[in-house]
């Protein structure tokens, strides 16, 4: 593996699928070349600029929940091609490919687990499955997780990492925005907390629905968070965007999130928030 692969290739691969194969990894934000093992020891956080790389669902579960405490829910929900959608590829084939690549049936996992001995229900997005996009399965998982939270009196935490609604499911994916918000309206009749954790990236229909209405909204450092993508905005307004635009720090400055929490401190912060709201 060469250090000197073409720049553009390197960057694209890395941002799309999290940590690429090979011994060395280049940080998509600062360009630092990091030894992969070191990056992993550092919870997939760039040692130079503190960019938090996209995590796959397994690593997220490992760093969030007490050992062996996570048990999945609604695992059997499978996507279907309701519109018989085809662009350059059939949607059916895209699903199959990403299922093989990730070992997931769709872009989010739900389950329950203990966070420092406090039980919570959670939904975890995995960006490597079709960009973490929200279609019917993801929306249904979120909905069922909140229902489960209501029935079992559990707090709900959602770790978002998503480009937004899944175009291949057309109007059905748009309707996941109102569906997930409708269940939160029900959930909010209880006194249970909903914590929304925004990780890189959280945009479009995910950012403009459940992710933006948590009781507490936390972001990982330097995550891209916004409604419209930066390129779309540049094309619309014909200007360059300011440095750090739509990154967590920018959102914190503008009052859109409660706090930025580093990965190494996330579990502890979640525990602290839960214990205050649940009074345990």
């Amino acid at each position: 593996m060469s250090l000197f692969r073409p720049r553009s290739n390197f960057k694209k691969e890395q941002v799309k699928s999290g940590i690429p194969e090979g011994l060395w990894v280049k940080c998509p934000i600062c360009g630092e070349i990091v030894y992969k093992k070191e990056l992993e020891r550092n919870l997939d956080v760039c040692p130079k600029c503190n960019y938090h790389f996209r995590l796959n669902f397994k690593k997220r579960i490992d760093i969030t929940f007490d050992e062996d405490s996570f048990s999945p829910l609604f695992e059997d929900l499978k996507p279907d091609d309701i519109l018989e959608f085809k662009d350059t590829k059939k949607y059916k084939d895209r699903i199959k490919e990403d299922q093989e690549k990730t070992g997931l049936l769709d872009a989010a996992v739900s389950g329950t687990g203990m966070i420092e001995k406090i039980k919570a229900a959670a939904v975890i997005f995995d960006f490597s499955f079709m960009g973490g996009s929200m279609g019917r399965v993801v929306g249904e998982k979120i909905t069922r997780t909140f229902k489960y939270g209501i029935e079992h009196k559990l707090p709900v935490i959602i770790f978002s990492s998503s480009g937004g609604a899944r175009m291949q499911e057309g109007i059905f994916s748009l309707m996941q925005m109102s569906k997930t918000i409708a269940i939160i309206a029900e959930y909010n009749r209880t006194d249970l907390p909903y914590i929304s954790v925004l990780t890189d990236p959280t945009t479009g229909g995910v950012s403009a629905s459940f992710a933006s209405i948590g009781d507490v909204i936390i972001a990982e450092p330097k995550a891209l968070i916004g409604f419209a993508g930066p390129r779309v905005i540049e094309k619309t307004i014909h200007q360059n965007l300011p440095e750090g635009f739509q990154r967590s720090e920018y959102l914190l400055d503008h009052g859109m999130i409660d706090m930025i929490v580093e990965r190494k401190d996330m579990k502890n912060m979640l525990k602290n928030i839960l214990s205050i709201f649940l009074n345990v």
């Binding site: 933006s212 419209a228 503008h254």
Partner: peptide
Amino acid sequence: AYPGLGAEERGQSEAIA
């Protein structure tokens, strides 16, 4: 919804949600 700089700055996502 308008994809503009100010719109993002002032929380377009939150406004819609």
